[in-house]
Design a protein around this nucleic acid. Structure first.
Lengths: 219, 219
DNA sequence: ATAATGAATATTGGATACAATATGCAATAC
DNA sequence: GTATTGCATATTGTATCCAATATTCATTAT
């Protein structure tokens, strides 16, 4: 008789669940810069005491997503145009490098998966999904590099700027242009051309940065 | 009458104090890979309850310095040779870039400060100080770049590998060689040569990586 | 002897209670 | 009217306690 065993002791802790939910809410724009995170309110929402909420907030602060001040609580971290610009440059440097390392190791399964994410991104009507779908497209390609530390750092950088991605894609023609650029990046990967994939990725990121900064300066 | 006001409300929380102390202990090698972090013991040492200790541990986990398992507590994170190698490559990429951006913005005060850190590094006899002094030398140079996000990410990477730095510097001639390389980097900065500073920084980091990996493979 | 079992103890997870600080609002002063 | 003060309330920080789970060790079975 064959019994499938499952590890029943590793359900997520309350703090982890709350941290993930808050992180998602911040990234997807449901919580905005400067919004206060009230410990008692969040505890009520999750049916728990404040202790795991505090632990979740401590985690989020380490991720740069919230800022706490002693005795005054936590607020969602803002991001200045200068910081956003720097993070975009950072991403161009790092993601360009990672995709170059990844291309020689990509398989047909990589391409198929990336194609699915690209298509989903292109056809979604819900702005809230753009960040996640964009991320899935890119990180599927990068994952072939096997550079897990790099990927973790990229994920963290994306967490910080995803809310701005929505603003940038909302620009006239933003979505169509991003989709074209994704197509070109995927084509370079499929052609086995690391230099071109890297170059296109850097242009893609820096182009998005330029658009967004232009919008901020116009506002 | 002139009164100097001070902000008296911003002492660090217990969790922050504990987190910083544990982080330092890990980085400096006083806590080793796999060491358990016992909540009750740490709470006693700091004269507090376990709650701030739990918060501190949650923070450290986000920093990649400890690994927790539900109901089993936290242990100091290990680092495999592969992960160490990747982080060194990561540092070469990032720090090379940052110092190139920094060179054109460096001042005489930068050089004087870096010189002091270089000298302190060269003459210390205490291996426990190598990581911090090495870090101060490099980050003094990088700070002129004004790339604060990059610097934060570099600091985090250094936190992960500083304990290995000690091993690498303990190698025959490791300290003398690192000092020579620091001298060359500083000279390139003083000469206002970003490309050379970047190149020497990358070589410095990748050379340290190669030495360490050779030692690991010998063991 | 080794392996299995069960109870006691240790440790973690988090609920509740208390202490410390911040905020808001009504009352008072000018 | 505006500014200041003082008190009540709200919120954060953490101590204490209880519940849940893991580990250890003595006892029993083979």
């Amino acid at each position: 008789m064959q019994i499938d065993s499952v590890n029943i002791s590793q359900g997520a802790s309350a703090a982890t669940i709350i941290c993930d939910a808050l992180r998602r809410a911040i990234i997807e724009g449901r919580l905005n810069d400067g919004d206060a995170l009230r410990q008692d309110e969040i505890a009520r929402m999750f049916g728990t005491s404040r202790i795991p909420v505090r632990e979740a907030i401590a985690m989020l602060e380490q991720q740069g997503l919230v800022v706490t001040q002693r005795y005054k609580g936590a607020v969602v971290a803002g991001i200045s145009p200068q910081e956003a610009a720097e993070i975009w440059d950072f991403r161009a440097l790092l993601e360009g490098h990672v995709i170059e390392a990844a291309v020689p190791r990509m398989t047909a399964a990589t391409f198929a998966r990336a194609r699915r994410h690209l298509d989903a991104f292109a056809k979604t009507a819900n702005p809230r999904d753009w960040g996640e779908l964009n991320r899935q497209f890119h990180t599927t390609l990068y994952a072939a590099s096997d550079l897990s530390y790099h990927l973790t750092v990229i994920d963290k950088a994306l967490d910080r700027v995803d809310r701005l991605l929505r603003a940038q894609l909302s620009l006239s023609n933003g979505l169509a242009r991003a989709t074209e650029e994704h197509e070109a990046i995927l084509a370079a990967c499929e052609a086995g051309n690391p230099e071109q994939a890297g170059q296109l990725t850097r242009q893609h990121i820096l182009g998005a940065k330029a658009n967004l900064l232009a919008q901020i300066n116009r506002d």
